[in-house]
Nucleic acid binder design. Structure first.
Length: 270
DNA sequence: TGCCAGGCTGATA
DNA sequence: TATCAGCCTGGC
């Protein structure tokens, strides 16, 4: 167990921001987080954050994962003070971080996300991890499941994926996994691409459109210029930015602003 | 009962 | 090129 003082970090806001579907609320202010084949418990009181891992594991993995090397004050300071809506949204969501998650995990997760609710996306991801992922144990004996590799999902049947409640998205996950395995799209290549190239490359995968591609770039490649527009964001833009969102002003950090807006729209009174 | 949820594909004009 | 139905399924 290690303890850190961290500003502009809220594990509960990150949980509700809808970018990670492998976080479980264990108790008030205490969350279990699974990423790739790792697991950590995070508990928070104010700026005091406890991680149930060694200092080495924190530095090697979780510090980057939670984007804790970044000072989010610089993003918050860029917000137009005349823009009351975004200023309020950012103030309320100022503990959100853009996580640095695994590319393959984000591809599958956001394929599943379409026409779906956050609660159901969580269940679907949990189902495929439990059915196809490897069972792991923490040093304390806590059991969790690693995210299944492309090879495993490529060899699954559409029926097996449907049994995980993926519905019509099953064929998207299956064909995308097969495209990765047969080399049509290289995950390593995507990781080294610019945002525009990565976005275009991901669009080659069956079931991935503009919105899903932007989400993957934002949450896996940390392309902060990505600005995924879903139904919530579209409604917010129509209401608060009838003349268009000022992308120029927030060039290169639109993704952070998108998260503040998304959080505000989903949790307007929390 | 019907609509909608963090969209996308494929058919049609 | 643009438009639109159809798709899984659970919650309201």
């Amino acid at each position: 167990m290690i303890v850190k003082e961290i500003k502009n970090f809220s594990i509960s806001q990150i949980d509700r921001s809808g970018q990670c579907f492998r976080m479980v609320k264990l108790d008030e202010g205490i969350y279990g987080v699974t990423a790739a084949d790792r697991y950590v418990q995070v508990s928070q009181e104010g700026t005091r954050v406890c991680f149930s891992c060694t200092e080495q594991e924190y530095k090697e993995f979780w510090q980057q994962y939670f984007d804790l090397d970044t000072d989010y004050e610089t993003y918050l300071a860029q917000i137009d003070p005349q823009d009351k809506y975004l200023s309020d949204a950012a103030r309320r969501g100022s503990g959100i971080r853009i996580l640095r998650q695994d590319l393959w995990e984000m591809i599958v997760t956001f394929l599943i996300s379409q026409q779906n609710t956050i609660a159901r996306i969580r269940r679907c991801v949990q189902n495929i991890c439990e059915k196809f992922g490897e069972e792991c144990f923490t040093p304390d004996g806590i059991s969790y499941y690693a995210f299944p590799k492309p090879q495993v999902l490529a060899n699954a049947s559409e029926e097996e994926l449907r049994a995980c409640n993926l519905g019509y998205r099953s064929k998207y996950v299956l064909r995308t996994a097969q495209s990765i395995i047969n080399g049509e799209v290289s995950l390593d290549a995507v990781r080294s691409m610019t945002y525009d190239d990565a976005r275009a490359e991901l669009l080659k995968l069956y079931g991935i459109g503009e919105k899903v591609s932007a989400c993957i770039c934002l949450f896996a490649l940390h392309s902060l210029e990505a600005f995924p527009v879903d139904t919530h964001i579209r409604q917010a833009l129509e209401k608060h930015y009838p003349n268009g969102f000022p992308h120029e002003r927030y060039s290169g950090v639109q993704g952070v602003m998108q998260q503040y807006i998304f959080y505000q729209e989903l949790f307007p009174e929390v």
